[in-house]
């Protein structure tokens, strides 16, 4: 009985993170990086993995220490925790994926101010045990990653004519590779994300009605 309730709660946490309280679409968190790094799939994957790693590490640390952290200084504790893990991500990318690190540039450091992590730490990890926090972190990281990758796939195909660097425009295509330059730049990101938000909000409105 207790076991099934426990697994039900875990399942609910996961669904909330992946769809109901989707970090980007419904909570509007982490928009900057979702917009800026969705121009190429490889950037999106790197960023998604980075954010998921930081989320997971923060979840484990914060939920483990939640009874010790004094309430008044919890924000600064979160920030230092997050910043430390971001340094790890930054070093890792620079060492093993220098090309991606160069094209992402300052945005790796900006994971610190990515409100998903801060928001989840404040709303969830300080109140729940480590197991649930890990599930929540994985769910949110997964939601963020699939959002980024799906936007990036559209933008990369339309903007560069490639997918993960491979040419996907068929040879019979009448236009020369059809690079739709706007898609690779800021306006394309705005339009696509607003389209995604429109679709997801319409669906969740239909669900609730």
């Amino acid at each position: 009985m207790a076991e099934s309730r426990k697994s039900k709660k875990a399942f609910e946490t996961f669904i909330n993170g992946v769809w109901k309280d989707h970090p980007v679409f419904s909570m509007l968190l982490g928009i900057c990086s979702a917009l800026a790094l969705s121009n190429k799939v490889e950037n999106a994957i790197a960023m998604g993995a980075g954010v998921t790693f930081v989320l997971l590490a923060t979840a484990i640390l914060i939920s483990g220490l939640r009874k010790i952290i004094p309430n008044r200084i919890r924000m600064i504790v979160f920030m230092i925790t997050i910043a430390s893990f971001v340094i790890i991500v930054d070093r890792f990318l620079k060492a093993y994926f220098p090309d991606i690190a160069a094209s992402i540039g300052a945005y790796v450091g900006l994971i610190i101010t990515n409100c998903i992590i801060m928001g989840r730490a404040e709303a969830f990890y300080v109140q729940n045990n480590t197991g649930l926090s890990i599930i929540d972190a994985l769910a949110n990281g997964f939601a963020y990653t699939y959002t980024l990758v799906s936007i990036a796939a559209i933008r990369e195909i339309l903007g560069f004519g490639t997918l993960l660097g491979m040419n996907v425009i068929p040879p019979w295509w009448p236009f020369e590779k059809a690079p739709w330059v706007v898609m690779t730049m800021a306006p394309g990101a705005f339009f696509l994300l607003s389209l995604f938000i429109w679709i997801s909000r319409s669906i969740s409105k239909m669900e609730s009605e």
Binding site: L28, F190, F191, L193, S194, I197, W198, I199, S200, R201, S202, I203, K205
Partner: peptide
Amino acid sequence: KGMKGPGIIMT
């Protein structure tokens, strides 16, 4: 409906 708020701001 779904466009209200953040959607339209982003557009």
